[in-house]
Amino acid sequence: MAGDNVSFADFTLGGLFGTEETGGLVFAVICVVFFTALTANRVMVVLIRADARLYTPMYFLLSHLSLIDMLCISTIVPKMLVDYLRGQKTISFAGCTAQHFLYLTLVGAEFFLLGLMAYDRYVAICSPLRYPVLMSRRVCWLIIAGSWLGGSLDGFLLTPITMSFRFCGSREIDHFFCEAPAVLRLACADTALYETVMYACCVLMLLTPSSVVVASYARILAAVPHELGRRKAFPTCSSHMIVACHQPAQDKVFSVFYTILTPMLNPLIYSLRNKDVACALQRALRRLRRLRGSQGVSREAF
């Protein structure tokens, strides 16, 4: 694992498109999902920044969740689509390293952010009078900074170790991006100990925010005294639980779900279940129609 044994040759990605018969269909589906994810998350960010009624800590954190989702899906999918169109599957050693680091950082930041967002819901429901103090602008920025710090720490720790092994053989990664377990299968050295430590770190990163989510919402449900109140609180909790508590796995199917589908589903889960966002979207569309109408009248007058 010494530095002078590192091989800097290109890797080959196994891809996700399969045979030529199914490749075109898979390509079209991924394109639709990719542009839907970018559009939905972009709309969330714009609505939250443009509508004064959404100037709350919860939506401030949601806007950063959408930003992370846009960055995460853009780290993997564009190269995969371009490589399919160009008929190539290679990725340079530097590109693989960068992709590995960005993926770990962004996924880690999202895990921590989802966990800390549960604290916001707990304070809003259980301590509403103290909410402006406990969830001040400064606290929100600390949550954002803590999420990025936790994610980047994971990337800075694991990426140099993963990419410092000597790789041999075909150098074909049996995956559609440079995910650590798939890359480590190409290492010439025994990586069992490192993989055990890496999995332990990943499990810890998953359990920490998930435990915060579960504990926060358990306290919320216990604090709401009436059945009607619990039914009103449950939709707020359930959408968060759906996103936060799925299990990341190394299989391609689960990797597709988390890296490609989740960035599309996150804004849909939060926005479709949220009347505030739906109303903000309706107000934005009405303003846009009025603006287009006034521009049309101006042109006719001219």
Rank of each mutant, 00 (worst) to 15 (best):
V33F: 09
V33M: 07
F34G: 03
F35N: 02
F35L: 15
T36F: 13
A37P: 04
L38M: 12
T39G: 07
T39M: 11
A40Q: 03
N41H: 01
N41Y: 01
R42T: 15
V43H: 04
V43G: 00
V45D: 03
V45W: 11
V46P: 00
V46F: 14
L47G: 07
I48K: 04
I48C: 10
R49T: 07
A50Q: 15
A50I: 06
D51Q: 05
D51E: 13
A52F: 15
L54K: 06
Y55E: 14
Y55T: 11
Y55W: 12
T56M: 06
T56S: 15
M58P: 00
M58V: 03
F60G: 12
F60A: 12
F60Q: 05
L61M: 13
L62R: 12
L62E: 07
S63G: 12
S63K: 15
H64T: 11
L65N: 06
L67P: 01
L67S: 09
L71G: 07
L71S: 09
I73G: 02
S74L: 06
T75N: 12
K79P: 00
K79F: 08
M80G: 03
L81M: 00
D83G: 09
Y84M: 08
Y84G: 00
L85T: 13
R86N: 14
G87W: 10
K89Q: 11
K89F: 07
T90P: 01
F93N: 01
F93R: 03
A94I: 08
T97I: 00
A98H: 09
Q99D: 08
H100K: 06
F101G: 01
F101L: 15
Y103S: 11
L104K: 10
T105I: 08
L106M: 10
V107H: 08
G108P: 02
A109E: 01
F111E: 04
F111Q: 08
F112V: 11
F112Y: 14
F112L: 13
L113N: 02
L116S: 08
L116K: 08
M117T: 06
M117V: 04
Y119I: 11
D120W: 09
R121F: 04
Y122C: 10
Y122R: 10
V123I: 14
V123G: 02
A124F: 13
I125Y: 03
C126M: 15
S127P: 00
P128Q: 09
Y131D: 04
P132I: 09
V133Y: 15
